[in-house]
């Protein structure tokens, strides 16, 4: 009976005090250190674009094609990485760093006009072709002038014993200079800038030895 009571009391003690613990071993895991390497690569992007620009009208009102080079340069500024978040494991730092770039765009247009219709004006009033004047034969001749010319011609025929004479033409306003006969016209290389002008009658004379020559008779 006593033995029964002792066991009963032991049961009560256990109920109220609990089991007596003498030795507790705690096993704690070491904290994991997050190691992240952040590479801040700074890029400078530079590119150029060649452009041809067509102006329908420039200041002179003519279409012009210009060729130029537009350069675009993008530079990054100094970047300061943010402190690594305690929750870095859950949130990668790049997502928490919204400020990425400062951009500087440099446009350097170097335009070049490649097509413009222009001309230079030059001056030269002494060019030989300008001083070579063609004088046309007149359609009508005044009677008085014919008579004067015939008198001169008569003297010539007697003096030089000409076989025959034909009339070539009458020319007015013939300037001083070297005269050539070209068909019905005279070609005169004008002498000097202030030449004298005269009227001229031209005959073709045939000599006794079978030759021909032009006879020029100035009338003024």
């Amino acid at each position: 009976m006593l033995k029964y009571l002792i066991e009963l009391l032991k049961g009560f003690f256990l109920e109220f005090k609990g089991a007596k613990a003498r030795n507790v071993d705690l096993e704690v895991e070491k904290p994991q250190l997050l190691k992240r390497e952040i590479n801040w690569n700074v890029h400078v992007l530079e590119s150029s674009v060649k452009a041809r620009v067509l102006d329908l009208k420039d200041e002179k009102g003519q279409p012009v094609v210009r060729e130029g080079c537009f350069r675009l340069k993008v530079e990054t500024s100094t970047l300061t990485p943010p402190p690594v978040s305690p929750n870095a494991k859950d949130k990668p730092p790049l997502l928490e760093f919204p400020e990425v770039f400062q951009q500087v765009a440099i446009v350097e247009p170097s335009l070049r006009k490649v097509t413009a219709l222009e001309t230079r004006i030059l001056s030269n009033p002494s060019l030989l072709p300008l001083w070579r004047k063609k004088v046309k034969r007149e359609a009508r001749v005044e009677r008085e002038k014919i008579e004067r010319a015939l008198r001169v011609l008569q003297e010539m025929i007697e003096k030089e014993e000409l076989k025959g004479v034909t009339f070539s033409g009458y020319f007015k306003n013939v300037p001083n200079g070297t005269i050539k006969i070209a068909g019905n016209d005279l070609i005169v290389d004008i002498d000097g800038k202030n030449p004298e002008f005269r009227s001229l009658m031209v005959f073709r004379a045939f000599t006794k030895d079978g030759k021909t020559k032009n006879v020029l008779i100035f009338l003024d």
């Binding site: 219709l117 001309t119 004006i121 030059l122 009033p125 300008l130 001083w131 800038k193």
Partner: peptide, 29 residues
Amino acid sequence: LLVVDERGIPQEFKYTEPIVPNELQRILY
């Protein structure tokens, strides 16, 4: 442009340098 007096004597002569339009100009104009 040739300027002459009443007797046909040259007083002034102005001229342009010859112009040869290039292919691009031919297309544009």
